[in-house]
């Protein structure tokens, strides 16, 4: 079974978002997503300073198997990107919720979080896909 932390919010397209103590949002892809993709070899991230909108493409993750768009669960200005992924894309496979994060956004609208899935609802999405 894949790891689905209870404190995060999810998109059914397998991105997670974590609201940090300072109000910024960190975004990445789930353990289930990295398992489906297999070894990640490239990650294309948005530029720092770019404005992104929730539900829109914010990057691409390429594995040995496939290329997959990354959608942002929230809107806002990109504050930081995970530059370590350039050298070590395998962080996405090995630590999808920690050092394998993709980018950080300055949340403009807290209500963006409301339609997102909680861990139970996301877990149901994964189970439905597996069957």
């Amino acid at each position: 079974m894949s790891n689905i932390p209870g404190e995060l919010k999810y998109l059914s397209s397998h991105e997670w978002v974590r609201v940090e103590a300072d109000g910024t949002a960190t975004i990445g892809i789930t353990d289930h997503a990295q398992d489906l993709l297999g070894d990640v070899v490239f990650v294309e991230l948005p530029e720092v300073g770019a404005e992104i909108n929730s539900g829109e493409e914010a990057g691409v993750v390429e594995s040995v198997k496939a290329a997959s768009d990354i959608f942002s669960p929230v809107s806002g200005e990109v504050l930081a990107i995970n530059e370590a992924l350039e050298e070590s894309p395998d962080l996405v496979n090995n630590e999808p919720y920690e050092d394998g994060w993709f980018f950080k956004v300055k949340l403009t609208d807290e209500s963006d979080l409301e339609p997102l899935l909680d861990a139970d609802a996301y877990s149901a999405v994964c189970e439905a896909e597996d069957h």
Binding site: G38, D39, N93
Partner: peptide, 8 residues
């Protein structure tokens, strides 16, 4: 088997 953990 497609892989046993990591194809790479």
């Amino acid at each position: 088997p497609i892989h046993y953990g990591s194809q790479l």
